[in-house]
Write a protein that binds this DNA or RNA. Structure first.
Lengths: 207, 207
DNA sequence: GTCTATATTGTGATAGAC
DNA sequence: GTCTATCACAATATAGAC
């Protein structure tokens, strides 16, 4: 991301923030111009159209949306430990990007193909075969329960992202349920729960 | 829902379907008129404005969005069995309403207050105190692990809704991961997984 | 590079003929 | 009730002065 000058960067930051919060169609060029402190028409000088500006924002935002798993998968630890580490570090990753999961889902509804293309480009570096091999070995050795990778991906994403998706209403839910936690505490506790749930589930049942 | 005549019903159905698919701002009165087979201006005769039409659609759609839990909670079974039954029957409930979870999340981003009001109106019938009492008794008896109700709600919603949210891209994911399942099989299998995960997690660890 | 002025289109809404 | 004609307005985008 080498942007030519300061103004261009300011516009880009403003656009990203607004798209992230409100999505494409609810964000107007006027909104972006106001936040960037520039006149509406000048946006077109830097970015030809709203669509091009959005596309650039999307490409930048979407990079933080998937769990970073390569380094964990490369470690020499059990598959169960890898999965738990992926999930908990994903929660940590989302902590600084609370709005990303909701944004992803809005995009997924608006243009599923766009998301598919991105997800696949992320997955080219992942060696699924070696995951399956490790699974075979550890199932054989009675260390882990066999699982379907698609289901695992959906499970992890659901467990980790859903609190962030619900963040706008969570503080009211806490009140209703008699609790008095902060969102931050909730997320910290969440890491433990996800850790436990995945560990227990992946442990093979003793016959 | 007693609607005056057939045309009004047709409009209402068209509007609901489009709002569900594309959300409020991406749906135009023209879209609705086309799908209902009527001229654009005639919509205003039946429903004063787009906002009123959307509000009526929302009130109707949102009723199927939360798990139906009252009858399960009233049963004379263990708390663990109640939770598992709530989750699995929720998945079954969503089967006929695949688009609802995504719609809920779009709404939640557009107008969180609206969703909060609705969730609370749904929860007035729930006796949280009796859940807590049952939990106390069963924790005492070593039958269940103590859990936080907010976390449980988020866990169940995340596990159950996320496959439906991802439905538009799931068939491509199956291909990429070498699987060849249908979405329907995936959901059936999902019920087992959610059942297992919740059961295992709620079982107290033996010391 | 940045602005003012303007073109163009799409959308929600109303008035009035039939 | 349903349509045609029209209004009002907001939003993207372009042209051209400076």
């Amino acid at each position: 991301m080498e942007l030519h000058d300061d103004t261009e960067q300011r516009i880009f930051n403003a656009a990203q923030r607004l798209f992230l919060q409100k999505g494409l169609s609810e964000t107007t060029m006027q909104d972006i111009a106001d936040l960037a402190g520039i006149s509406r028409t000048s946006l077109h000088y830097y970015f030809r159209s709203k669509d091009r500006l959005f596309e650039k924002s999307l490409n930048n935002l979407i990079r933080n949306i998937m769990p970073r798993i390569d380094s964990t998968l490369a470690k020499d630890i059990s598959l169960r430990d890898k999965i738990v580490e992926i999930a908990t570090s994903y929660i940590e990753q989302l902590r600084g990007n609370e709005l990303l999961p909701g944004f992803l889902i809005m995009e997924l509804r608006r243009d599923p193909q766009e998301i598919i293309r991105f997800v696949f480009s992320e997955w080219t570096t992942i060696d699924f075969q070696s995951i399956k091999n490790q699974m075979d070995r550890e199932v054989e050795a009675g260390l882990i329960r066999r699982f379907d990778i698609s289901q695992m991906v959906i499970t992890i994403m659901g467990l980790c992202t859903f609190p962030f998706i619900c963040e706008p209403i969570l503080s009211d839910v806490f009140k209703a349920l008699g609790g008095h936690q902060t969102f931050d505490n909730f997320i910290t506790e969440r890491k433990n729960i996800v850790n436990q749930m995945l560990s227990l589930w992946l442990t093979p049942s003793e016959k």
